[in-house]
Design a protein around this nucleic acid. Structure first.
Lengths: 239, 239
DNA sequence: CGGCAACTTGACAATGCTCAACGCGGGTGG
DNA sequence: CCACCCGCGTTGAGCATTGTCAAGTTGCCG
């Protein structure tokens, strides 16, 4: 699977996009680079002049609090775009960093503008922004209303579904390069507690882990366990 | 202050909008109505054909979980627009309900399209969507990383700031028609705990309450107490 | 082989939940 | 006009979940 195909898959999932537009996507003059794990792609306060597309690896939006805590507010997976329209807002109110080594592509503003002149692409890009917001809302629910291993189970279901949508988790198992500490910063719990929650999910036979690989043993069971309902990801073709 | 002025204030806050566009806003054929407290404006699963503008009162985005819990994911305050582009996503993945009696205005799709043909308005509407997303991210941080009365304090700071931005909280005090139970559904804690957290804030001299009115006694102190930094609301004129 | 980061486990403390009771005030029906 | 009711707010006591601290263990990599 080539790099731009990821974006293609994502954008073309819900409605057909004219071939001419797809050609434009494929022909994106890509400014690819590989970034080490735990490097900032954009730092809070920056006024970014370009958009970053994740091609490989995991990244996250995060913010450091004055007391030294870190809060991770979103995961960026392959095919995801950072801050398509952040230029409208002026400076970044949070940072984006890699969690694993990542291959990313820089798309400058003028290219973005070209993409947005195409009505279908504009709709598709909008849509992916709306889905990102829907994901944030689900994280709010997850943090507010699920506890213990159900919270972590829901996150796993989401990541699996999102990776499957770009063809990166064919058999319900996937590379998950996130440490327990980082999971704690995501779910607002301590590393120790993440460790115990994961152990519970393993003991219940819902997931298995081999190194940095997660396998969902029975997606049906896991979804039911944590009330995961993939509709918020809007992966199906729309109305 | 007239109704559409609210929207005007919001949209024109960060960049100037041509008079012709403002006229268009003022001339919106408004379909106003008053809705009782605790009524759905849009229900999960609906495929809305119009956009709702809140003119007066508090509303919220919420979702009911299978176990009967309710999770409130966002507050909609006067001047806020519900789901400008939800049509792109097909059916609603959550509901919107009034918290208090509300005056709302229905803007149908064709009118929205007209507004969006104006570049400045389109930018301004986008921007308000981006700010909504920034607010969701802050709620994630609040839920994940702040505990006890700091969590509730941060929410109060946000609401005060947002109300001030539309001229509804001139003296650091504001009508707050949200019950302790609803606050619990927002912050993911029990009613009893909300009660105790509010009592702590009162005892610390940070807020005062008279009936359904909240007064922030010293905004500086309160912000500092809960690490509130209003920049994420992007109320200042941009870059 | 040594070092470091991540993971694991146990014991105890803190935070928040549940259950239960009571106060208060506005609205309604007798 | 009064009595009642019901929703909301308040408070106390005991319990459950999660945090903190501390001590290993594992596994990779130089």
């Amino acid at each position: 699977m080539t790099a731009t195909n990821l974006l293609e898959i994502k954008l073309a999932r819900r409605e057909s996009i004219p071939n001419a537009d797809l050609e434009l996507l494929r022909g994106l003059k890509r400014n690819e680079r590989v970034v080490d794990a735990h490097e900032d792609l954009i730092t809070e306060g920056d006024n970014p002049s370009a958009v970053t597309l994740i091609l490989e690896g995991f990244a996250c939006r995060y913010k450091l609090l004055p007391d030294g805590q870190r809060s991770i507010m979103a995961y960026l997976l392959p095919g995801d775009i950072c801050d398509l329209h952040v230029a409208l807002l002026g400076e970044m109110d949070h940072s984006i960093a890699t969690l694993s080594e990542c291959r990313v592509s820089r798309i400058d503003k003028t290219t973005v503008s070209e993409l947005e002149e195409r009505p279908h692409l504009r709709r598709a890009l909008w849509l992916s922004q709306l889905v990102d917001h829907a994901i944030s809302r689900q994280w709010i629910i997850n943090l507010a209303r699920r506890r213990g291993d159900k919270m972590i189970a829901h996150l796993m279901c989401e990541i699996l579904s999102r990776l499957q949508a770009v063809g990166l988790a064919a058999d319900d198992s996937f590379a998950f390069p996130v440490t327990q500490g980082e999971l704690g910063d995501t779910l607002g719990v301590s590393t120790v507690h993440v460790n115990r929650m994961l152990a519970q999910l393993r003991n219940k036979g819902l997931i298995a882990q081999q190194g940095r690989n997660v396998q969902v043993l029975n997606f049906q069971n896991l979804s039911h366990y944590c009330d995961f309902d993939a509709r918020y990801l809007h992966l199906e073709a729309g109305q």
